[in-house]
Simulated scan of single mutants.
Amino acid sequence: MSFTLATWNINSVRLREGLVTRLLAEEMPDILCLQECKSPVEMIPLAQFQALGYRYIVARGQKGYNGVAILSKLPIVDAGDKDFAQLGHARHVAARLENGVTIHNTYVPAGGDIPDREVNVKFGQKLDYLTEMRDFFRWERPDRAILVGDLNIAPREDDVWNHKALLKIVSHTPIEVDHFNAVMEAGNWQDVTRHDLREGRLYSWWSYRAADWDTADKGRRLDHIWATPDILNASHQSRILRPVRGWDGPSDHVPVFATFDL
């Protein structure tokens, strides 16, 4: 089986239904994992997606916040979810393909603006979420698995526009990167995007605050695709669709793609 998978923080699936439909029609991934859907599952606008062949959905949602969904042309079954850090948020869902591969779709908390859990509850929640992810994958060691999503951390120096300038900015602080790496190590996860695109700056997010995001190019790679070692070498053709950030009414994130031959 060969399939192409994409992950995208859509920042409201109902508001940006047309962008999702455009991506599905133009790029035709077999599986699309969405984060920050901001919709109860029953209100996700599925008709247009189903008309394009995406007949299968596994999702968790809530009104106005968070929310994760896996849309697929290929048959998938619900493989559960985890409420890491007991936040009561719809931030994780898993689905299983017929070949036994499990896909985890995750939306890690952004963590607020101040990288100090003593004065910023949201930052503490982010660290706790990552700690429980680490413990889960350490206890239930994954195999034949893929993890994707907006993990809200840019781990490498070349995953941000300016490493030194962002060391004290949430998403690139050393403590966040340490937690990120601990999750990877616990599940023996491998970075698919960097396995293919080893060197050079890569971004998947540009702030809405920039008047000209493209020229300023102050990006961060917050969106990731991981795989377990037993299927890592089956992955190829990683790419980040930067032009999508320039579509009308865009999300501040763009889709990240990879293809797997399994």
Results as ranks from 00 to 15, higher is better:
Val77Thr: 09
His104Met: 10
Asn152Val: 10
Gln48Tyr: 07
Arg138Tyr: 09
Ile57Cys: 15
Gly246Ala: 15
Ala59Lys: 02
Gln35His: 13
Glu157Ile: 04
Arg14Leu: 04
Asn233Gly: 02
Ala227Thr: 06
Arg242Gly: 09
Asp116Gly: 12
Leu130Ala: 13
Pro243Met: 08
Asp212Gly: 00
Gly200Lys: 09
Gly111Ile: 07
Arg55Ser: 08
Ser39Lys: 01
Ile225Leu: 14
Arg134Trp: 01
Thr131His: 14
Gly124His: 06
Ser235Ile: 01
Glu26Gly: 03
Gln50Tyr: 00
Arg91Ala: 09
Ile10Gln: 06
Lys168Gly: 12
Ala90Trp: 02
Arg201Trp: 05
Gly200Ile: 02
Pro174Glu: 09
Ser12Leu: 04
Gln237Ala: 13
Asn162Lys: 03
Arg55His: 11
Asp128Ser: 07
Arg201Gln: 05
Cys37Arg: 01
Ile70Tyr: 03
Pro255Ile: 02
Arg221Gly: 00
Leu74Ile: 13
Gly249Phe: 08
Asp30Ile: 00
Pro229Trp: 06
Gly64Cys: 03
Val254Leu: 01
Gly100Lys: 08
Val108Ile: 11
Arg209His: 07
Pro243Leu: 09
Lys122Leu: 07
Gly111Tyr: 02
Ala216Pro: 00
Ala227Phe: 07
Phe49Thr: 08
Arg156Asp: 06
Leu87Met: 15
Asp81His: 12
Asn99Gly: 03
Val41Tyr: 07
Phe84Gly: 03
Ser207His: 11
Glu27Ser: 07
Gly53Asn: 13
Ala69Leu: 03
Ala154Arg: 04
Pro115Val: 02
His236Cys: 14
Pro174Trp: 08
Val101Ala: 05
Ala145Thr: 07
Val148Trp: 06
Gly249Asn: 14
Leu32Gly: 14
Leu23Trp: 12
Ala47Tyr: 07
Thr228Ile: 11
Ala59Leu: 03
Leu46Val: 15
Ile225Gln: 07
Ile169Tyr: 12
Thr21Val: 04
Val244Trp: 06
Phe84Lys: 05
Leu130Ser: 02
Leu127Glu: 01
Asp223Ser: 12
Gly200Ala: 04
Gly64Asp: 05
Ala145Asn: 06
Arg117Met: 14
Ser204Trp: 01
Gly149Gln: 01
Ser171Asp: 09
Asp83Arg: 06
Asn152Ser: 00
Asp128Asn: 06
Leu202Cys: 01
Asn181Cys: 14
Arg91Thr: 12
Gly219Phe: 08
Glu185Lys: 07
Ala186Pro: 05
Arg221Cys: 02
Phe180Ile: 05
Asp113Arg: 15
Leu202Asp: 00
Gln86His: 11
Leu34Gln: 13
Glu17Leu: 09
Thr131Ile: 10
Ala216Glu: 08
His236Met: 11
Ala47Cys: 03
Val170Glu: 01
Arg144Ser: 06
Ser204Met: 02
Asp196Ile: 14
Ala165Asp: 10
Thr106Glu: 03
Arg242Ile: 12
Asn120Asp: 10
Val93Ala: 01
Lys122Glu: 11
His236Ser: 12
Ala25Lys: 15
Ala227Gly: 07
Thr259Leu: 04
Met133Tyr: 04
Leu32Phe: 06
Val160Ser: 11
Ala210Glu: 15
Pro115Gly: 11
His224Cys: 08
Leu34Phe: 13
Ser251Glu: 03
Ala6Phe: 08
Ser207Gly: 15
Asp135Val: 00
Tyr56Met: 01
Val170Leu: 10
His253Trp: 06
Met43Ala: 09
Pro155Ala: 03
Asp178Gly: 06
Gln190His: 14
Val93Gly: 05
